[in-house]
Each structure stands twice: as C-alpha cells, then as structure tokens.
Design a binder for these strands. Structure first.
Length: 530
RNA sequence: GCCCUCGUAGCUCAGGGGAUAGAGCAUUGGUUUCCGGUACCAAAGGUCGAAGGUUCGAAUCCUUUCGAGGGCACCA
C-alpha cells in the first residue's frame, strides 16, 4: 500500500454529535491511491481502531467516514488534566525556539491612534500572546516614524495653533493640536516669541513629538497593550544604518542610478515598479528606513518578522516583499505582512466618518470611552482582520448578551460562583475524581470542546488568526451554560454529597480554567463576579 | 487602466475540500420551589453575489463577471 503521512489524515469533531466524538475522512482520501472503495478501507481501518483502549465504538458511515466514539472514562480524565495543568493548558510547542518579531500599530506621532491602529493594537497584542503560548519567543515592536516631512507638517501645525494662524494647507487640524501646542509652550518654560521661526519650529517639533508619543503610549497602556521595543526611525539615519543597508544592496547588485536618484530594482522581485531609495536631492526616501529597519531586525536574530498594516497601506506589500527578497531572504517566511481591513464605528445607524481636516478623528480613546477596554478589544479581536468591520457603539455599550464578550465573561463568572458555592456546600475536588461518572450527553459535549483548546491555540498561531480563540470561547460558554442547566454540581436540599458532585466540580473548574486561559489570549479580563 | 481585500440569515459576523452551511442580535413562542434567568429550549429566517471549471465531494480551490472598500509618488 502506498505510503501516506500523518499530516494527510484529517481528524475532526463532527458538527453532528450522532457522528461520534471524532470523525475522519481518511478512507475517502486513500481511496484513489489505494485503488479500493472508500467503505472497504474504512471497514479495514475500523477493526484496528476498535482495538485501541478508550475507544468505545467505531462506525463506518455514508460514503466512508469513520466515526469514533470514546468511552466516558477516557474523555472524562481531561477534566483533571486541565485543572492540573492550570494556566499552561492550551500551550504548545509549534514555535519553540523561533524568534518572532511582531510590529504593529506604529502610528505616526502626529496625532492620536485612529481605528486602524486600534484594531491592530487589539489583534496584534492578542496574536503576540497566542504565539507565545505556541512556544515562540515573541517581541512586540512599535516603529516610530519620527523622521521626514510629516514631522515638519506636524510642527508647523503646532506653531500655527500657537500663534492663532489657520492650519497650514497640508497640516493637521483638530483640537488635539491646540492642546499639544499649549503643552509645548508650558513645557518649554521660556518665552517662545523671542525665537526666530526656525528655532521655534524646532522647539515645537522636539517637544511636540515627545508629548504626542507619550499620549500614544499612555492610551495603548490603558488599552492593555505594551510594547517590548519602541524603535525610532530617526535612529536608523543617525547611526548610518540606512547607508549600510544601501551599501549591502549595492554589493548584491540590486542598486542603480537614474535621473540623479538611487534606485532599488524591486521589479526583479515581483514589484510592479522600481523604487527610489535616495532621492535626487540626497534625502532618503521613506522606503530607505524600511530597508535599514528590516536588516536591523534580521541582525537582531528574528527569523520571522510580521508586520501589520492597515488597508490603506497595502500598496507597500509588493515593495516590502521585493526588498526582503533583494536581501536574499524568503518573502512570506522571513517577512510576513498582514493587512487589516477598515473598521467603521456606527452610531444610531450612521457610520462615524473620520475627517482629519475637520478634526473628527475616531480614536482609540473614543472607543474606550464609549464601550470600555474589554468590550472594545473583544469586538476588534473576534472578527478576522481581513474582513471589514462595522462596530455599533450603541450595541457594544450595553452590558447584555447583545455583546458576546459578556456572554463569555458571564460564563466564567458563573464557574467561579459554582466553585464558591461548592466550597460552602462541602463539595471538595480532592475527595474524589471518578471520570466515568461524566456520562451525560451535555458533559461529553463539554469535555469534547474543552479538549480542542490546545488545537485551537496552535491553529490561531499558525494562521495568525486570534479571532479563532474568541469564537472558540463563545462555543465553550454555550456548552457550559447548557451543561449547567442539566447537571448540578451542588446537592439540593438534604441530598448527600456524592462522587458525582465532586467529579462535576472538576469539570466546572476545568471549564473556568479554559475560559480564563482563552480570555487571557484575546486580552480580555476574566472577572470572578459581574 | 492595473493591483489588494471582501461579498454567507433582516443586522453584525463565524465557517482553513467533507455528512442536514452556523452563532449572537432582532422576530415569535416556551422554561425557574433549589448551584447567578446577564441563562436555557424551540420556531421562523439562506438560489453562500452570478456563471463556468477542478474533485467521489466546493461557501471553501481555479477562471471569468458584477458589486463594495482600499491602493497605485523622487509623500510619509
């Protein structure tokens, strides 16, 4: 018989519980290479499966699915395993020994963080937690664009605000500009009006950028997101890292000069046009910083560099990937770029359109103010980052089941309440654990879903999709509530405490543990009371 | 014109080639002497934008097409 590998075997939990605890379509897949009817293969394999301890029965169904049912003592043991593993249940080793650099948010220090950056703050931080849980060595990094023309525009806008002049044509408007300008003045502490315009601008630039960056850091921190490294673009120019990166590419033969500028031949690597890296006036183009920055990350030993960008930056992907290839690296492996689609906030059925000129930017702080950190983060993290998202602030503000985060948090709080009540009722875990007693339909279903947690975490890590963890938690919460409705942990009235109660307490606590571990991974609190 | 992402229930979104396409909300009806009813159960709601193709099997992969959003600088 032809050889096949374990990775070709799919084993899944059937949607329909009549199809067993586990099912595999391996017989259907092997039909062609083995040149046998799928049902015959399934029959053959099932005789082997039936002999495995813990498997109670094996059925061949439909065109050749193999449906496997476990006996309760085998599946019930999981409850104790989870409680014993505690916080580490769900962790894996897919990325053991791999150094991953996650760069996200990286909002310019010229204004507050808008919704695009906020989405990545929630998703990127969650992804960092998930990759850590998968064994990776993860660094969260923020690239601070404190170099170039935008900073000039920012400082000129501050001066204009200070002097009561209209916002410059290409400048930044909005109330925060006036606020920052006033704070620069008081931080400077001397009389600004005696300075020539150029020096005044330098004061506004240096102090203004620092203040703005402080604001950004503070609101991220408030949001539960802290970075390991804040990398300054300016440092790449000061340390001549940019020059070294260009020199390296020149040695590799990917540089040419034309019209007085220095170009990188990115079209050799799939980009749609070549890119200027040093402009004809001698100034470095923006991409020059990216070259040096990427090289710096590689020199710091990061095998995998993940960069998260908003949809309005997806045009960079081609050149970034080409740049990676130009250095001799493998695009998609050493460098991954994730594009997050737009987030619209909706209020009273109307999208809150942001306008930089009018200063009506919808910011991270607006979101937190409207719905709080947990609801805000959860709403952003429960959807795939490549689907556009409409967030209804009226719904998210409610502390009801309209809002899935409360559904999950409530389930967790309920596991804690049951544990508290069990203690006062004299139901103690350490007195007994008899897994085969967990034989109710709702218990085997709850156990089944709890068992999936490590696989979900690994999957979310590999696919870079934190929303899978959030969706999974909603599923766990649902199974838990249904189980709670059917199976009592605490004896009623004069009923004595039995091993069944004690064993169910293990299951209750295991569920709480999974919810807690999962909520941690999505960056949301797990309250014990609500 | 070219490129990227998306199109699934009235709404917001899940569904990494498998069995009868799911959840929450909204709608309708039901459940509680007792562990938190912020819960549970049920009904109703779908030509998975459309058309071809690959496959034993497609919401999922490929091509075309329509629609939405975004992007196509010696700006950053």
């Amino acid at each position: 018989m032809p050889v096949f590998t374990a990775s070709e075997i799919s084993l899944e939990r059937p949607k329909n519980s009549e199809h067993g605890d586990w099912a595999t379509s391996v017989a259907l897949k092997l039909s062609k290479p083995w040149r046998m009817p799928p049902r015959a293969i399934a029959e053959l394999l099932s005789t082997f499966l039936e002999a495995i301890p813990g498997i109670s029965c094996v059925d061949v169904a439909g065109p050749g699915f193999i449906n496997i049912r476990l006996n309760p003592s085998a599946s019930g043991g999981l409850a104790k395993t989870i409680v014993d593993l505690s916080n580490s249940y769900g962790q894996g080793s897919v990325y053991r020994g791999v150094k991953l650099n996650l760069e996200f948010v990286s909002a310019n220090p010229t204004g507050p963080i808008h919704m695009g950056g906020t989405r990545w703050a929630a998703v990127g931080d969650s992804l960092a937690r998930i990759l850590k849980a998968a064994g990776g060595e993860v660094t969260r990094e923020y690239y601070f664009n404190d170099h170039g023309a935008q900073i000039d525009r920012f400082s000129r806008s501050l001066i204009a605000a200070h002097l009561g002049e209209p916002t410059p044509e290409d400048g930044y408007g909005g109330a925060y500009i006036h606020d920052i300008a006033a704070r620069v003045v008081s931080a400077y502490g001397h009389d600004l009006s005696v300075l020539p315009r150029e020096e005044m601008q330098e004061v506004f630039r240096s102090i203004g950028v620092e203040l703005m960056f402080g604001e950004i850091k503070a609101s991220l921190h408030e949001f539960g997101v802290d970075f390991d490294v804040y990398f300054h673009e300016d440092s790449l120019h000061e340390s001549r890292a940019v020059d070294r990166a260009v020199e390296r590419l020149r040695e590799l033969g990917h540089i040419f000069e034309q019209d007085g500028a220095i170009w990188l031949r990115t079209t050799d690597f799939g980009d749609d046009k070549d890119r200027v890296i040093i402009k004809s006036d001698g100034q470095a183009a923006y991409i020059a910083g990216d070259l040096a920055y990427y090289l710096d990350k590689r020199e710091r030993g990061f095998d995998r560099n993940i960069v998260m960008l908003g949809a309005d930056h997806h045009g960079y992907v081609g050149r970034m990937m080409a740049m990676c290839a130009a250095f001799g690296d493998e695009p998609g492996v050493n460098l991954e770029i994730m594009i997050g689609q737009m987030v619209n906030l909706v209020r009273e059925g109307q999208p809150m359109r942001m306008s930089k000129r009018a200063g009506t930017i919808v910011t991270l702080e607006d979101l937190v103010e409207a719905v709080g950190v947990d609801a805000g983060r959860y709403a952003l993290v429960r959807s795939s980052s490549d689907s556009q998202l409409d967030i209804d602030l009226d719904v998210l503000g409610k502390q009801t089941n309209d809002n899935p985060v409360f559904y999950v948090q409530y389930a967790h709080a309920r596991t804690c309440a049951v544990a508290r009540n069990a203690m006062t009722a004299g139901v103690r875990r350490e007195d007994a654990f008899v897994p085969e007693l967990l034989a109710e339909e709702s218990e085997s279903q709850l156990l089944g879903v709890l068992q999936e947690f490590p696989r979900i975490v690994a999957q979310a890590a590999e696919l870079r999709e934190p929303h899978r963890v959030a969706r999974y938690l909603e599923e766990v919460a649902g199974y838990y509530h249904r189980w709670y409705g059917k199976c009592r942990v605490i004896p009623q009235g004069e009923e004595p405490v039995t091993d069944l109660h004690r064993t169910r307490l293990w299951l209750n606590d295991a569920t709480g543990q999974v919810l807690r571990n999962g909520l941690y991974l999505v960056g949301v609190s797990a309250p014990e009371r609500m």
